[in-house]
Amino acid sequence: MNGKRWKRSTTTVYNISYHLIWCPKYRRKVLVDDVAKRLEKLLLQKAHEIELEIVQMEIMPDHVHLFVKTTPTNSPHFIVQQLKGYTSRILRQEFPSLKSRLPSMWTRSYYCESVGHISEETIRKYIEKQKNK
């Protein structure tokens, strides 16, 4: 995907973005040094595989922030499920200390907020004005 505001498919014009956050189990500060570097590479690999553009990423010791752009067919739940599942499996294989410190790599929960170019108020006004046309 490129940096343009709108993307296109054969039937759709879209601009879909999400801010996603999730944490390691028990919010342990395990995302440091080599683990953090490897996590970044794994997230980029999986994102490419599922047609996801990671616009911005910040890996903190106890949580991950992503700003992503995606296609209309990728739900936030699918995205998080794919990224967390893939990274958990590989990180726990490559860093045995994670297995001994955590029963699973990630918490089950995550934060998701849709991010748009125009505000909710603008959309409400636009829809309301459609009645008067």
Results as ranks from 00 to 15, higher is better:
Cys23Pro: 01
Lys25Thr: 01
Lys25Asn: 03
Tyr26Trp: 02
Tyr26Glu: 04
Tyr26Ala: 02
Arg28Ser: 11
Arg28Leu: 08
Leu31Val: 06
Leu31Tyr: 03
Asp33Met: 06
Val35Phe: 06
Arg38Lys: 13
Leu39Thr: 04
Leu39Asp: 04
Leu43His: 00
Leu44Gln: 11
Lys46Ala: 03
Lys46His: 06
Lys46Cys: 08
Ala47Glu: 12
Glu49Thr: 05
Ile50Lys: 05
Glu51Tyr: 09
Glu51Arg: 12
Pro61Tyr: 10
Val64Gly: 04
Val64Ala: 07
Phe67Arg: 01
Val68Ser: 07
Thr70Met: 02
Thr70Val: 04
Pro72Leu: 02
Thr73Cys: 10
His77Met: 11
Gln81His: 14
Gln82Met: 15
Leu83Ser: 04
Tyr86Ala: 00
Ser88Pro: 03
Arg89Tyr: 09
Leu91Met: 03
Leu91Asp: 00
Pro96Val: 05
Leu98Phe: 14
Ser104Gln: 15
Met105Thr: 07
Trp106Tyr: 05
Trp106Gln: 01
Arg108Ile: 02
Tyr111Val: 07
Cys112Lys: 06
His117Trp: 03
Ser119Ile: 02
Ser119Trp: 03
Glu120Lys: 12
Glu121Ser: 15
Thr122Gln: 14
Thr122Glu: 13
Arg124Ala: 11
Ile127Ala: 07
Glu128Arg: 07
Lys129Arg: 13
Lys129Asp: 09
Lys131Gly: 14
Asn132Gln: 15
Asn132Ile: 13
